[in-house]
Nucleic acid binder design. Structure first.
Lengths: 233, 233
DNA sequence: AATAAATGTGACAGTTTTATGACAATATTC
DNA sequence: GAATATTGTCATAAAACTGTCACATTTATT
């Protein structure tokens, strides 16, 4: 699946030009004209990156950036600011709000794409197509197979997606709700506890191959996939 | 949650201008016109910083500063003085009273914000999701982990929250009630002494790793998390 | 020094949270 | 369409966590 990029820009010609360039380069562009529109579109599935115009009607882009960075679910979305002037001040303000990069208008399509790829590479080193390897666990999204120390492992669809999610989101605690959102999908009505059961199944499958506890329980919070060993209780 | 900043300034236009600038920059401004008003507003929840006008009716700002610095609960609140003249004398007096910084009127919004951020950064060098480090203790809110000298530490939920609170509120005494409010949450009906027990548990967990007494008892007042060693007595 | 007040501690029982095995319903495969 | 696999939910077991209490210590007062 292609990367989704949200373009927040009030000037239609620029916005459309950007979208065009993005689509030309294999990205999936979503457009927003105002901050309000942007906020409405920043929900699941979350875009993989946001291109944010600095001068927006109804509030500057920095405000949106700040708001996003303060939200648990959106804070990880990388943001590239589009700014008309290479103003030092603005840059500082932007970085305060957690901006990942800047592109100064006018910019060349080539530059824009280069920056986007750079940020994505930095933020998500694992492309959707590449096989992921983590401490002896190999997962190939293409062939849809999992190896653990080169021994093939057999997982159900849900366990596969769960493992995939974990492998691309290690060292971080996720609540059952977050896992449901990310692995099952939004608006699925499933009990929180169901996550426990699938965690159990995945654990069993991995442990069957003589492996440590990658999936760690964080009581009261959720689960964490980690290479580091958990301190003994 | 945004930082709360108390603006103590008798001249309405200036006060409002300051508030506006603060709000623009993501701070939460509270206004006070007089020292009395200020004192009334310096209570829970305590502001994170105080902007204090030097020339106040009914007593100079320095007096208020001194009073605050002598109070166990308010001592750690950073204060920035607003002074009309870059008077050397005043500066000395202010620093005597524990002022953290000065801004001389007229000042640019940019300067004010810069100073505020500098002071806050110095006092509370932690943002919500960043890992916090304090004298060898590392707490990562994201992975929900604690390390002490890079050795993983295992804490129960309450101890974790308690430590988290302390790490973001060091060098300041909190009463048991305040701790209950902040760590347990408001409207929880729990004995004051319960705090003692959890303090004990946290102390034990930290001390287990051969460490000093970060958590200090302030008899009759509460507890303080501090890097400095407590003077005996 | 004796008494009173505040804090430190270990134990413990109740409660909450998580792990686990079983099962019926549903989806997939052949 | 039968056989097989997968899924979500429950009930129950197993852990982990909590708040209190009773008693020990320490600190302040008279």
């Amino acid at each position: 699946m292609n990367r989704q990029i949200l373009v927040v820009e009030d000037e239609a010609p620029i916005r459309e030009m950007i979208s065009f360039v993005l689509e030309q380069n294999g990205f999936n562009a979503i457009e927003a004209e105002t901050i309000e529109q942007a906020q409405a579109k920043i929900k699941e599935p979350y875009p993989d990156l946001i291109l944010l115009d600095w001068m927006l009607p109804g509030g500057t882009g920095v405000k949106l950036a700040k708001a996003l960075k303060q939200n648990e679910y959106t804070r990880a979305i990388p943001i590239i600011m589009l700014t008309a002037r290479a103003d030092e001040d603005d840059k500082v303000k932007g970085f305060d709000a957690g901006i990942d990069d800047y592109v100064t208008k006018p910019f060349s399509p080539k530059e824009l794409i280069a920056r986007i790829k750079a940020v994505i590479r930095r933020v998500a080193p694992t492309s959707l197509e590449e096989t992921i390897e983590f401490h002896g666990i190999k997962l190939d999204p293409v062939s849809h197979r999992v190896f653990i120390n080169d021994k093939s492992l057999d997982l159900g669809p849900t366990e596969f997606r769960l493992l995939h999610f974990f492998l691309t989101h290690t060292e971080r605690v996720y609540s059952r709700e977050q896992l449901l959102d990310n692995v099952w999908g939004t608006n699925v009505y499933v009990e929180d506890r169901t996550v426990d059961v699938h965690i159990r199944r995945l654990r069993k499958a991995i442990a069957g191959e003589g492996h440590e506890n990658f999936i760690q329980t964080v009581r009261g919070s959720g689960y964490r996939f980690s290479g580091k060993t958990q301190p003994s209780g």
